[in-house]
Design a protein around this nucleic acid. Sequence first.
DNA 1: GACTATGATTGATCCACATCAATAATCGGC
DNA 2: GCCGATTATTGATGTGGATCAATCATAGTC
Lengths: 268, 268
Amino acid sequence: MAGNVKLSVAGPGGGGVADKRIACRDCTLFQLCLPLGIGEDELALLDEVITARRSLKRGETLFRGGAPFHAIYAVRSGSLKTYTIMQDGREQVTGFYLPGELVALDAISLGRHPSSAKALESSSICEFSFQDFERMGVRVPGLQRQMLRVMSRELLNDELLLLLLGKKSAEERLAAFLLSLAIRFRQRGFSATDYNLSMSRSDIGNYLGLAVETVSRLFTRFQQDGLLRVERRRIRIHDIDRLSLLAGDTALSGSQRIDSAEVPQGER
Amino acid sequence: MAGNVKLSVAGPGGGGVADKRIACRDCTLFQLCLPLGIGEDELALLDEVITARRSLKRGETLFRGGAPFHAIYAVRSGSLKTYTIMQDGREQVTGFYLPGELVALDAISLGRHPSSAKALESSSICEFSFQDFERMGVRVPGLQRQMLRVMSRELLNDELLLLLLGKKSAEERLAAFLLSLAIRFRQRGFSATDYNLSMSRSDIGNYLGLAVETVSRLFTRFQQDGLLRVERRRIRIHDIDRLSLLAGDTALSGSQRIDSAEVPQGER
DNA sequence: GACTATGATTGATCCACATCAATAATCGGC
DNA sequence: GCCGATTATTGATGTGGATCAATCATAGTC
C-alpha cells in the first residue's frame, strides 16, 4: 500500500524508460505545471519539448549530482527528493517534490546537476529538453514568464527553509513541515488533514536538520497533545490551527501569505 | 574608513534619490550584471528599462518586506543585506549582496517582496522595472536566458547555505562564509585574502544561524590558529587552503566546482 | 575632546537536541 | 507465511553552542 499521492494520470506501471505520451493539455497537472497562462495552440508546442516520460520505482535515481545538465523534470505522479552529498559522505536533503513541481532548476547556471534526485515511491516524470525549451521561449513569451515565476517561488521556498533551519526550534520545524505538506496537498485536490508521508523519518530529519530520534519523539508528542494522529506514515491532522500556531507563521512553501507589513523601526 | 568594496564607478555621493545615469556598456560591472552575452545594440535597450539609479547610505532601506514588487535591483557599488522578519520579531538574514548581484528575485512569484533589503554601507543601486524587463525579454532572448541563469545560481547559493545550516558545525560555517566572500571579491577584481566585512558580527551570526558570541570566539580562534588575522572588520587570510579544508568543500556561492561525482552506491 | 550608544570580546553556566544503545514494528523477498 | 533487513520508537547520557553577564573598544555627536 505504499502509493499515496497518486494522481489518476499516472501511466500504468509497466512501461520501460519512456512510455506513451499524454498531451500536456490532457494532463491532470495542467494547472500546476508550466503551461499556466499559455494559449491553446502554444500548448502544442510545449508538447514538442517533452523529450520523454519516465517511470521510476521507489529508490531509483532520476539524475545524479555532478552529471551534465540537459533536461528539466516535472513530477506527474509520485514524489521525489533531491539531495547533495558532501565529500565526507554526509547527505543533505534539499527538497521534496510533489506532482506538478519542477526539478533541476538549480542546474541551469552551472550546466551540471549540483544535486541528485531519487524517487520516494513509484513516480512518473516528464522530461523537458532545456535547450529546446529555451529556443521555444523565444516564440512563446508566456512560457519564459511562467518559468521565472516558478523559479522565484522556488527561491522563496528555500528562503523559508533557511529561516526554519537558522532560527526555529525542532518543534517549529516539524510543525511547519507538516503544514507545508498539508497546503501543497490541498492545492493538488487532496485532503490537507489526512495524508501519507512518502519520505522516511530519516529523510524528514535530514531535511529539517534534526536527528531521526528527535523527529520520532516530536511525532509522539504532537500526538499526545492531540494535535494529530500518526500511524507509521499516515498523518491525520486534528487541529491544524494549533499546528499553524506552533509553526510560527512560516508555512514553508505553501505561503501565499506575507509577513503582515514589517514594523517600520525608523531606519536604524 | 567604512567604505570598502568601492568600485570606481560609484556616482559621487551627493545625489538625491535618482542621480545621473551611466549607460550599461560603460558600467564597470558590465560583465557581472545581467548584460552578459547580450549584443551591442541590445545593450541600449537594457538601458531603457533602468528606471532609476539610487544611492543609499548605510542603514537605509531599499525595500520592505510586504511591499508590492515592481522592480529588480542590481548592486553597483557597496553592499546590501536581505532579511525576513518573523511575527515574533526574530529576524533572519537571507543574503548579502555585492556589486554585480541582483536583488529581489524572490519577489517575482508573489508580486510582493517577501524580504526587506537594507544597505550595509553607502551603496549605489540600479533599479529595473520588471514589467519593462519582461516585455523586453521578448525581443532580446539572451536577456531571458541570462536571467534564468542568474536565478538558477541564486537557487544554488541557497542550497549551499541550506547545507551549511542543516549539517555543518559553527566552525565550518564561518570558514565557508569567509571563503565565499573571498571568492566573490576575487571575481570582482579585489583581493581574495584581504578584505573588509561590511556586515556586523551580529549579521554574520544571524545569517549563519549562530550567536554573535560564537562568531566572535571563532574569529579569535581562527586567528590563534594562524589561519587569518582579524582586526575589527578587516580580514586578512593567511592560509586559504586550510580555511577551505575547514569549510568542508562548500564554498557557499562562489562554487564553480561540483561534488566530484557522487559515489554510485547502487540505488539503495 | 569628553559622552553616549553600539558593537565586539571574553568568561561562566545551561539546555535543546545529538548521540549512543536497545528494542519493537514493518517491509520486502522468496 | 517465515526471515533478515530496514525503519521507527523509546530511554539514558553527553555536548556544542546558546544564553546570561561583564568589560572593553569604537564611532558618532554636540
